[in-house]
Design a binder for these strands. Structure first.
Lengths: 142, 142
DNA sequence: CCACAATGGTTGACGGGTCAATTAAATAGG
DNA sequence: CCTATTTAATTGACCCGTCAACCATTGTGG
């Protein structure tokens, strides 16, 4: 059967290899893990947000959110308090230092992305984005 | 500064989301994790191979290799023995049952990839592959 | 009003990857 | 030859994600 497998085959492995490369490199460049930066990015655009909303934005497990926030709280990047109107929810917000740090992070992130997309013109960036979206869609319907 | 960030920004998150989707879905479809299948795939094309060569092919940590092989050995998929010519290296090979199982796995993998690339014609598949390779390259030189 | 569901969050255990330290074997060089 | 270095593999500790169990709180319907 499909013996020209190599071409398509490669794509799966490329995706895996790519991700294996991207995250550590990003962390080394930006000084923060991609996931944590996404958390902070959400917080940055908002005064205060419940943990559950945060989780739904970021789309990772609630347990992972809890643990990241615990770390970020200890490092003085965020604060948490109970929602007086509903004692189940905890509200999260950036501390002033957290907001400060975001400026560096954003720059590093832009630098990183530009490096990653080096040699891609606008049209290619768009094509790449479209393809990734289509792949994502295909996975979702599987 | 870069305020049209959204386009490029998206790519990082798309890559992350994609990988988050691909691995579990693959495992659910194929009944084995992508990494383990890659290990078995290497073993499939060879009579016997040292752990270190295997590791270099797959490009994961030696510790991870050890643990995967331990699991695969317990499930009767592979066997290991010492290289009599060099007692440091252990030689790994598929058991007959392991070879059998690979037939199913390969089919499932092809099915999965076809699903993933649904709607991509040959030209697009090639373009995608090329782009992924370029991204990988960009990361490596960062 | 009260029992029962639903919701938000935390915790523990597990899989999968990393790195660092350790062990055993082989190889080199004085 | 014997020490010193390199090499292959293993182990332990850690990070990050998942799932499942649990707790507290809130909402709901008889």
């Amino acid at each position: 059967m499909t013996e020209h497998q190599s071409a398509e085959d490669q794509i799966l492995e490329l995706l895996q290899a790519l991700n294996k490369g991207v995250s550590p490199k990003f962390e080394r460049c930006a000084g923060i893990s991609p996931t944590r930066l996404r958390l902070l990015h959400e917080l940055y655009q908002v005064e205060e947000i419940s943990q559950i909303s945060l989780q739904r934005e970021i789309d990772i497990d609630a347990a992972a959110v809890t643990r990241h926030l615990k770390g970020l709280e200890e490092s003085g990047t965020i604060t948490r308090r109970n929602n007086p109107a509903d004692n189940r929810v905890t509200l999260v917000s950036l501390t002033p230092q957290g907001r400060d740090r975001m400026h560096c992070y954003r720059e590093e992130k832009n630098r990183f992305i530009n490096g990653l997309l080096d040699g891609f013109d606008d049209a290619e960036r768009k094509r790449l984005t479209d393809m990734l979206i289509r792949l994502q869609h295909n996975i979702n319907v599987m």
